[in-house]
Design a protein around this nucleic acid. Sequence first.
DNA 1: ACTGGCACCTGGGCGC
DNA 2: TGCGCCCAGGTGCCAG
Length: 270
Amino acid sequence: MPELPEVETTRRGIAPHVLGRAVRAVTVRESRLRWPVAEELQTLLPGSRFSETRRRGKYLLLKTELGWLMIHLGMSGSLRLVSGDEPVKKHDHVDIELDNGMILRYHDPRRFGALLWVREPDSHALLCELGPEPLEPGFDGAYLHGRAQGKSLAIKSFIMDSHVVVGVGNIYANEALFRAGIHPDRAAGRVAKARYEKLAEAIRAVLTEAIRIGGTTLRDFVGGDGAPGYFQQKLNVYGRGGQTCRVCGELLKESRHNNRATVFCPRCQT
DNA sequence: ACTGGCACCTGGGCGC
DNA sequence: TGCGCCCAGGTGCCAG
C-alpha cells in the first residue's frame, strides 16, 4: 500500500488521536520486521506522551519526551486506531495502547516495515542522507537536472532513488513520467532542464492529488478496516499495460526497471 | 562513485 | 481442490 500519499494520509489520520496522549502499554507479538522492533518501545515508550507527528519521506515520526518512535510501513504495513476490544487479527504485530483505551495497531503481513527508536531524527543514518521532500521548497526542475548530470541510469530509476527525492514509489514514478511525457528508459543525464521542470511539476501534481483524495478516507483510520482504494480510477498507466492510452489511444507498453513493473505510452512518452 | 540486482516476507491470482 | 509459479505500492545493502 504505502507510498508517500498513503503515509501522509496515515499521519494525518492518527495525529489528532495520539497527540497529547500518553502510552499505557505496548504489546509486541512479532518483533521480526525488517529490523527487530526496537527494545525502547517496551522500555521507554510506556508512560511517555506523544507531542508531535512528522513525516520524512515514507518514514513516520512520533515524538515523545524521551525520543522518537520511527515507523516505516514497508510494502504491506498499516497503522490504525482501534478500540480496546477489537479482536487481534493475523499479522497484527504491535499494539500501542493509549491512556484513553484506544490502541494504535501496527499490521504488516510481509513484515518489510519497521518500528525503530531514534533520539535525533535529523542525524539518524536512515534519514540524514535522504533527498528533498517533493512537496517542499528546494525540489524543482533545476534541482533534478543538476543531480542528473553525468548519470546514465534510466530516469525512472533516478526519480525512485530516495537520495534524489523522497516519496516517489513505483505507482507515482510511472504516473509522473506519463504526465511529463518522458520515456522511462531515457538516461537521466540526457534529459533537458525544461523537461525536468515538467517532471518536477508532474511529481508534485500526482502526489498532491493522491493526498487530497486520500484525505477523504481519513475516517477509515478509526474503527473501519482502513483499506482505501481511492486512487485507482485516477491512474493513467500503472496497472494498465496492454490497454489503450487515455490520451492518444495507443497500446500501453510494459517493461521493468530494477525488477519493478513499468508501464508507459510509446507515443506520448519520448 | 555508479549501477543493477538481491534480499527480506506473505498472500492472492492464475494456469494446469 | 490443489499445487506451483508469478506478482505485489519499499529500500538497504552488496558485488561488479
